[in-house]
Design a protein around this nucleic acid. Structure first.
Lengths: 136, 136
DNA sequence: ATTTGTGCAAATCGTTTGCATCTGA
DNA sequence: TCAGATGCAAACGATTTGCACAAAT
């Protein structure tokens, strides 16, 4: 994705394409699907000579998430992961390494989900498949 | 579950059945399956005239979890939920209210889960079905 | 007697916010 | 020009930890 497209995308989301937002979007969306924490993104930005404060990284991630450009992934534990793939999909999680990645299959379906309680409807379904090193 | 059983269970887990642990276990396991945060448990304990510090509640919850008496449920957001039902099951989560409860079905199965990456094996699978008030 | 648990307050850590200063349109 | 964005540091809220005291074996 080139920066023009990114700028367009940001504008479309009602966000001004500022220096920092463009740079962060470039890092986030420029290399396939990513699962990243605020801290990691901040480190990459600084490494890429894009000085940006951690606070702005947080703000930007939240804005992007609100705009539907990112999706938050709930993992127990302290830090929050942001996923650049906002389509319907599920995750593998390697606890030992804190590594998170997509389940490469859209075949995955759930069977036997009961009717939700009255007056409620099902929104998103999150699935985390926890992996561990095989021991045997 | 009476306190004698609880004491036995704690001992079996290598934990001394102290006053506070017994009281907390009583609250946790004495009334069916529960999904509770440290703060909530602390409030209940205090209300039940069992003075216990929040720090001890945290320590106890973590010890119980380590001993397999509780299970941690990953919900995005700040607080951690502990589930007294450690068997294989999944959850509904009402975002608006921060309410978490079991999916009443063991029929629920996953179809199409691809082979895990080489050297890895599947551990636990977490499923959160997010509910929202029906709008229509 | 010894080991382990508890309480309190202080320390951590991720994340958010207030406010003065910049910047994009 | 001027609403909106950024940076910094301070504020925050959940959770953990250090240490002196108390309780369990």
């Amino acid at each position: 994705m080139n920066s023009e497209t990114v700028a367009t995308r940001l504008r479309g989301a009602g966000l001004r394409p500022t220096r920092q937002r463009l740079a962060l979007a470039e890092i986030l969306f420029g290399a396939g699907d990513r699962h990243i924490t605020a801290e990691q993104l901040h480190a990459e930005a600084v490494a890429a000579r894009v000085p940006v404060s951690l606070a702005t990284v947080y703000n930007t991630l939240n804005q992007f998430t609100g705009a539907g450009l990112l999706r938050e992934v709930a993992i127990e534990g302290d830090r929050t992961y942001f996923d650049t793939n906002t389509s319907n999909h599920y995750h593998y999680y390697v606890e030992r390494e804190g590594r998170l990645f997509d389940i490469a299959s859209d075949e995955l379906t759930i069977k036997g989900l009961p009717e939700p309680p009255p007056g409620m409807e099902v929104g998103r379904i999150d699935i985390i498949v926890r992996l561990k090193a095989r021991q045997s």
